[in-house]
């Protein structure tokens, strides 16, 4: 049984901001399907009473004192930018207030 089809892959690709050619999407769907089929074995584990592990470290997060440290020089901050004007990054126009 197929767990993920090209349509689902396209939905996921959109979420991940990837653009797949139709052939690529079909190949990805087949690969992901095989992997999801394999991981299905986890379903046989009884995990009703099992707490999830997000971190192997059984500690609390450390805290840093509220002290201002040196920032990068602005010209360094934008030095790697594909497009910048002055010390600001530039991107294609975004419709104000609209999240894409």
């Amino acid at each position: 049984m197929s767990r993920i089809g090209p349509g689902e892959v396209e939905r996921i690709a959109k979420l991940a901001r990837l653009r797949l050619e139709p052939a690529e999407a079909a190949a990805m769907a087949a690969d992901l399907d095989a992997v999801l089929d394999y991981v299905e074995q986890l379903a046989e584990l009884d995990t009703r009473e099992v707490a999830p592990t997000s971190h192997v470290t059984a500690l609390a997060t450390p805290l840093r004192e509220d002290r201002v440290a040196a920032s990068l020089a602005p010209e360094v901050a934008v030095a790697n930018a594909p497009a910048a004007e002055g010390s600001a990054f530039e991107v294609p126009p975004v419709l104000e207030g609209v999240e894409e």
Binding site: A77, E85, E90, P93, V94, E96
Partner: peptide, 13 residues
């Protein structure tokens, strides 16, 4: 995001 120009959006972090 600074939308003060028509053809570009500037980003200040």
């Amino acid at each position: 995001s600074i939308h003060d120009a028509a053809d570009v959006t500037r980003v200040d972090l």
